[in-house]
Design a protein around this nucleic acid. Structure first.
Ligand SMILES: [Mn+2]
Ligand SMILES: [Mn+2]
Ligand SMILES: [Mn+2]
Ligand SMILES: [Mn+2]
Lengths: 150, 150
DNA sequence: TCCAATATGTAGCCTTGGCTACAATTGGCA
DNA sequence: TGCCAATTGTAGCCAAGGCTACATATTGGA
């Protein structure tokens, strides 16, 4: 064992260390963006559907407590994605709206791809909520080609 | 506004609150299992490829510090997924090996599906590392059908 | 044989994202 | 018009999963 031995025995079907570490790291960081993306998308959906996005509605739809939502909204505000006057609902900034739009498009395309390969609609909707945050632009482009060309 | 108004204006293309909350919750909990799955799979891969899985190797391949890995391994030990003698590497229990096997199969199938719909191999490998944890059994079954039938 | 490099383990810190409990503010309607 | 129910906000707790720094143990080789 020890470094030298490792280098000798390595590569037995395993990917190179650096490449594998990069992959795992990317998956971890995707996760950290996931919440931001879900909030942006949901806020945008709520405004479109009901004219406003209030903290309690967001919390209810995410299935978390309103305290959790309010704290998270403060972070989004700090990052310039949303604005809000107290007791007046939440609004997306240009950056927030752009994030929402990208996220919504990706969400839809992921659902479409899943359905296209035979996943039942409701399962696709459920799984997409997690999968979407890990689909790269390159994969997304392939999804679009596949869904269109059929 | 207030509850009544919400109920009235709701459902404008939005999914029912309970269903949406369930989806988001599922995505959150999938994330919390992700690390456990990755560790189990990686430990199994390392043992297969090099005869042993040592904490530092695991850490290197995950791209985290060895302290993080050692702490996580303690949790896996507590949950009965691995055993270890100090300085002797990590071993999977029957439960751990079963988790590794399930996870590996799913990982492979996700990569195969991605490639089958036109995602480049290396992109597929990278994205699968995150996607895999959010693919339900029902979706997996569809993936298998799709990949086979071509 | 024994020591230096490597691996393992421990301590203490941080951020994220959950939660409950309590406080303060609004605004619909009795 | 004023009250009360809903919403919003605050405080303080927790666990997970990162990190660095330091301490201890092992072991291949000189
Ligand atoms: Mn999502
Ligand atoms: Mn989504
Ligand atoms: Mn993974
Ligand atoms: Mn994997």
């Amino acid at each position: 064992m020890i470094a030298k031995a490792q280098t000798q025995t390595a590569a037995e079907g395993l990917p190179p260390v650096a490449a594998q570490a990069r992959r795992f790291g990317k998956a971890r960081s995707a996760q950290s963006h996931a919440r931001m993306e879900d909030y942006a998308e949901l806020i945008s959906d709520l405004i479109a559907a009901q004219g406003e996005a209030r903290a309690t509605d967001i919390a209810r739809r995410l299935g978390v407590s309103h305290a959790t939502t309010i704290k998270f909204l403060a972070r989004m505000k700090a990052e310039g994605l949303v604005t809000s006057q107290p007791y007046r609902g939440v609004f997306l900034t240009a950056a927030g709206a752009a994030l929402a739009e990208r996220t919504r498009k990706r969400h839809r395309l992921v659902v479409d791809l899943l359905v296209a390969v035979g996943v039942p609609q409701d399962v696709a909707e459920a799984d997409a909520e997690g999968i979407e945050h890990h689909v790269s632009d390159a994969a997304l482009a392939a999804f679009a080609r596949f869904v269109d060309a059929r």
